[in-house]
Write a protein that binds this DNA or RNA. Structure first.
Lengths: 183, 183, 183, 183
DNA sequence: GATGAATGAGGATTCATTCAT
DNA sequence: AATGAATGAATCCTCATTCAT
């Protein structure tokens, strides 16, 4: 019985997270918690029961996203062609960004202070692995460091999203960055 | 008398703009209009008389900034060493960004929608000139286009600011971008 | 089985009362029912099953306290020195008050309206007995009535608690009241 | 013109204070600020413009009351019969209390923390004067101190109000306290 | 009977904007 | 034109109470 209830709660938690991701992606982190609740189909109190603070909700979203990205990076590192894996991941992330307003804002720390140290480090490690392998394959210069990759990843993701780059501009811009990694 | 008053009004307009730039730079675009008024030494009503909407005020600031940047770009294009002018300008803008919260937010469209088409085009033209000259000097690959430069400029400015890059990371990251422009 | 359950229920009821007394004593009547539940080690629903309303819970606590006070008064009336018993009881109650936030608030009706007619009458009877014996011993003027004693008891208890009297002020103040009873 | 406006503002400020006094007197300090605004006939924002915090509003009320009491005490000290002035003032305050819920709560510090050190000291000084004169006139024992008078004043005021004493009980109770002062 | 998740009204506070002076 | 007081919608958050499990 308790298990049942917890299942309900978990379902709600996930609905809230999904709703929040959508709402914040559309309207930015300034969107109201009430709108998240409405989109999730729950009462406002339920949102605050699961995430005692709006900030907690934002933090949960970002942590989730970062974790997902790290997993994707790991998958690419294991399976794919080392020469292309890093660039493929980079491209993928930037494309994704175009669909998520919050991510960029929050990765950036835009006004909201969300502490995501842990998940961010994990992502950097995964990216580091991709980088090392690309370097071993000779696809990236040896003196490029993980924090530089992360920095350009964040920069292009934000810009792609917020600046409303079209796919063509996005590709051309990434090409330049990738050329910078190579030469 | 009317002329007198208009002079007053113009002075007020400028004080408000200056105050707004300062306040929004420090506190971000979420800072209150009242704080701008206080810093400008005028009453809140005066701010709204000059800028009927907070958004108008934000727009005016960004337009001003973009215009200033365009002028700087032009100055460099006329005077400086074509091989270095583009990179110097690029570096300068990114460094500046670290001191201005609003700029990045607004260039990005963070929450607020400010229409700055004209001044942005003007800046792009100036940057285009810098680019052309750098290409003629052989410092940048020929197929790099102005909108790509603008895109990376915006991206690194935002990221440098919001991500809190330290000067070292900033330099290393720009080096990669510049390498991408070259080869 | 039903009997078993009722034993559980009774135990829960008492744990809740104890927890409520502690919580409300510390945080005042504004403390949340949830905190009471937590301290009692039961779920919030259980609290509301036993006391359908927060007010009911508060009422139960006050009734319990009044009953306890009446018992103490009775004990003093039977055993102690009639000359001192009333003053000892009075002093004791006021001292106690300093440790109980709710009591004063509730005796006072602070925001919450709790009906405690019966237990209050019983306390007044006990106090009446103490008074009568003190009068017979010549320690208190004959025209002092029980409701006056009760009134001053409530007054000094509340004030001692809420006003944060230090022990010295408390003693000096009580001395004046006792002098009023005597002469 | 500015003066006009300020007149409006002052009028509003006073309406708000009056409304607040009434509302908090009826419903206790837990009454909502919105109700105060409604009773004052202003929008909620106006209340917060004048008193940035609910607490500030409560503080203002209490300070005002204490000041008023101090003035009354001073007036009695100057004009009246020293033998009766202190008791008259004491009686008056307790009678007044019956009409004011907040006062008692706040003097007591009931939940809300309002800092009224200054006005309270001033009142104590005024009461001290009344006391000294009563002592010089031989109406009060010499070893009674001002803080004891204040303590009993607060105690009886609260109790009279919150306990709902009827006039008869009030008078009889005060007689006991006064007897304590004398003997 | 117990559990604890969900509800949703209520409350304090902020702030862009309007408007009387 | 400037002033700054007033407005009131919007927002975050709390908590008594209900109800499905």
């Amino acid at each position: 019985m308790t298990a049942q209830l917890r299942a309900d709660a978990r379902r709600n938690r996930e609905r809230i997270l999904a709703a929040a991701e959508a709402v914040f992606a559309e309207r930015g982190a300034a969107a109201s918690t009430e709108e998240v609740a409405a989109r999730a189909g729950v009462a406002i109190g339920t949102v605050f029961r699961h995430f005692p603070t709006k900030n907690d909700l934002l933090g949960a979203i970002v942590k989730g996203l970062l974790a997902r990205l790290a997993e994707e990076a790991d998958a690419l590192a294991e399976g794919g062609d080392p020469e292309k894996a890093l660039f493929a991941f980079f491209t993928h992330v930037v494309e994704e960004a175009a669909a998520r307003k919050t991510v960029a804002e929050l990765l950036a720390g835009g006004g909201v202070d969300v502490r995501v140290g842990k998940p961010l480090e994990r992502l950097q490690e995964s990216v580091g692995t991709l980088l090392r392998r690309a370097q071993q394959a000779g696809a990236v210069r040896d003196d490029v460091r993980p924090d530089e990759v992360m920095a350009l990843l964040a920069a292009t993701s934000q810009a792609a999203l917020l600046g409303g780059w079209d796919p063509d501009l996005r590709n051309r811009t990434l090409k330049i960055v990738f050329a910078g990694f190579r030469a």
